[in-house]
């Protein structure tokens, strides 16, 4: 016959196991629910095109890496032959897409810093921004058509904007900015939303034209043993001080 204390211990352990089991089941259910909800949400709100008037234009950098932006795919107005003739006449230093025609709804000189403090004036406007791609390419839905790219301002380095673009357009990105690397500099033209109704209120740009301005660069420091010498000296001093303290403490006892 078990003693009362052991019996109480058994009950406590049994209760603990029950509680842990309940928590695990609850967590599993929540995970399944979250996954299902996420899948439903992304398939339900998957877009066919970011803009009814134009398709996202895929842009590839040329072999010299000068940031040329030869546009592929059909343009919004269909004048592809005229555009080709114009492109042939322009110099290689021209980094601006000649197909980007200004109109009354087009705010030509916007920056990511401007959009970081944007108000309702900018909402729904066509904007053009230049920034560094950072982080990762985040899948926007399960269909594999669209993705999220984050562009960081080149000026202040603190402001960013989410760009909603096609995977095709994102192929022009050769490097994503993080520690040790500067990401591809992109020029993106698209519609800015202060609180996008298609994406549950997020601030974003639905890209219509994506061009590479500059390729990404890797700049990671290489291993240099000399850089560790100051650290080795101070660590050694610190360890000596600990040992001396221990010795003094023993002597006082």
């Amino acid at each position: 016959m078990m003693r009362k204390g052991a019996h109480t211990t058994c009950n406590t352990q049994h209760s603990t196991r029950n509680a842990l089991g309940a928590c695990a089941v609850l967590l599993f259910v929540m995970v399944v629910f979250a996954t299902a909800l996420g899948v439903w949400q992304e398939t339900a709100f998957a877009e066919t095109a970011p803009n009814s008037g134009a398709t996202a234009v895929e842009s590839t950098a040329d072999e010299s890496g000068a940031g040329d932006n030869t546009a592929k795919g059909s343009s919004a107005d269909g004048s592809s032959e005229d555009s080709k003739a114009e492109t042939d006449e322009l110099s290689d230093d021209n980094l601006i897409n000649p197909q980007q025609l200004p109109d009354s709804s087009f705010i030509y000189s916007t920056s990511i810093d401007d959009l970081a403090g944007a108000d309702a004036y900018f909402d729904g406007q066509t904007v053009q921004v230049v920034g560094e791609t950072i982080g990762d390419k985040i899948n926007a839905d399960m269909t594999g058509q669209f993705c999220w790219i984050t562009l960081a301002s080149e000026d202040t380095l603190n402001n960013t904007i989410s760009i909603y673009m096609s995977h095709e357009a994102a192929k022009s990105i050769d490097l994503y900015g993080r520690y040790g690397s500067t990401g591809t500099i992109l020029q993106v033209q698209g519609t800015y939303h202060l609180a996008c109704s298609e994406h549950e209120g997020i601030s974003d740009i639905h890209a219509e034209h994506v061009n590479v301005v500059e390729k990404g660069k890797v700049a990671k420091a290489s291993f240099d043993i000399n850089a560790f010498i100051p650290g080795a000296i101070v660590v050694a001093i610190g360890v000596v001080m600990i040992i001396v303290y221990g010795a003094l403490k023993e002597r006082q006892r």
Binding site: F228, P230, G231, A232, V234, V235, A236, I237, G238
Partner: peptide
């Protein structure tokens, strides 16, 4: 790595 190694030493001191 070099920076945190140094910082560890400073913290120990």
């Amino acid at each position: 790595a070099a920076r945190y190694f140094c910082a560890m030493g400073i913290s120990l001191i």
